[in-house]
Design a protein around this nucleic acid. Structure first.
Lengths: 230, 230
DNA sequence: CGGAACATTGACCCATGTCAAGTGTCGTGG
DNA sequence: CCACGACACTTGACATGGGTCAATGTTCCG
């Protein structure tokens, strides 16, 4: 699990941008985290909230026997560390070189006192987070490896569309192992499923981390069920 | 899926009691729902928040091919309908005769204006909800049928302990099908796993819905990984 | 150039899904 | 009070998707 270079602290929760909160956070401290460095680990005191500026962070828990469940990835604009008070229940580890802006929770409380509407905004932010957690449950719950991986790729595509980037070609910041631990599959199954989609002509893989969606509608019908955010 | 007797409306989210909010809700309208009746369905306008007084409610989504993913059960004291604005993304169906107290969302907003701290309370309530959704992901993600079912039973046990009831004997309000759709297993696997636990002498099943935990520590070690709330 | 980390591929096996009876249990109507 | 039907649960036999173990390929970086 590599060197847990702890950096800071707070309960784990991703969330979409949060206007109003934004300005405040803009004043926060900017920090760099190398790939594989931890932002915080389970049990750390929950003292800061972070916004990812560049890079990507994985949020996960580890079971007693070492299996790892990634509960989400945080990309630029996402918040991590929102959630419980007290101790972190989650680990947050950068999966590539990442810049974060942090705000101490104490500061958050100060702002809350000044701007009462912030509480409601936090509530909305975390509600969105909950929705995406439930989407993952849906994805993970009773679907086949192919359905899971395709849902994952389509979620990526949607995210790209939202931020104005090419929804049919993107670079995956995470390894097969990360994807597997996110979707509840093994590395091998993830790999085989990628190969299968490639063979079916639905995607192309110029490099193992670069995905091109060739037949989006076929992919959509493969994903079948609902699936939304992730 | 039986008669969808719609009753009311709001996005789906369970949550633990919520002091302060409590009094307000106490003034809400009390209503009865029969087993299998719907409190709200996907697509309904999200107009009310409910607190379960007695009974139990299942929250679920349905995939295109008919598979059903239950994302949570709401028991007495739990709130449902907190979450998104707009339309429900979830179905809420009583699994036994249930009494609910409801508060229109408009009322919620009015109170929010008067009591700004409520926003933060809502935030905390939903954060707890998120934590339990993530626990379910953990349970569902990469664990065996036995681990899943045992985690489920232990979560029930913990809930009972919390509300001052016997943590070693309880009645399950839901069917095997419900449990299966919650844990991502088939009815048959759920049934077989119950039988297996019984054969191993870890539980007793006086009736199929009545569970007695005989060897809790053995069960705990079977559940292995973390698991918390559910 | 060499080694480490990641990814792919193959062969095999097992847990769980699927299909199909069969067995309670409960409520209703005769 | 019994008989029937509906439903939920259990159990068995079989099929299969994906996990496991192992070998090989590829990419990247020192």
């Amino acid at each position: 699990m590599s060197t847990p270079t702890r950096l800071a602290l707070q309960p784990a929760v991703t969330a979409r941008p949060l206007t109003g909160f934004e300005q405040t956070l803009a004043g926060g401290t900017l920090q760099r985290v190398e790939a594989k460095e931890f932002v915080f680990v389970e049990g750390d005191a929950a003292s800061h909230v972070y916004r990812v500026e560049t890079g990507a962070v994985a949020l996960f828990r580890v079971l007693a026997d070492g299996r790892r469940q990634i509960v989400g990835f945080a990309y630029p604009g996402d918040l991590i560390g929102l959630g419980t008070e007290g101790e972190h229940v989650m680990n947050a580890q950068a999966i590539k070189p990442t810049r974060l802006r942090s705000l101490p929770v104490s500061g958050l409380h100060r702002i809350l006192a000044q701007d009462p509407s912030l509480g409601f905004k936090l509530y909305q932010a975390i509600a969105r987070e909950l929705a995406s957690a439930r989407d993952l449950m849906l994805t993970t719950g009773q679907r086949s490896a192919t359905e899971r991986l395709v849902s994952f790729l389509l979620a990526f595509s949607r995210r790209n569309a939202r931020i104005g980037q090419d929804p049919t070609a993107f670079e995956l910041p995470m390894t097969r192992a990360d994807i597997g631990d996110f979707l509840g599959l093994t590395i091998e199954t993830v790999s085989r499923t990628f190969t299968k989609l490639k063979t079916m002509g639905l995607i192309e893989l110029p490099h193992s981390n670069q995905v091109k969606l060739v037949d989006v509608s076929a992919l959509k019908s493969l994903a079948d069920g609902d699936d939304q955010d992730l």
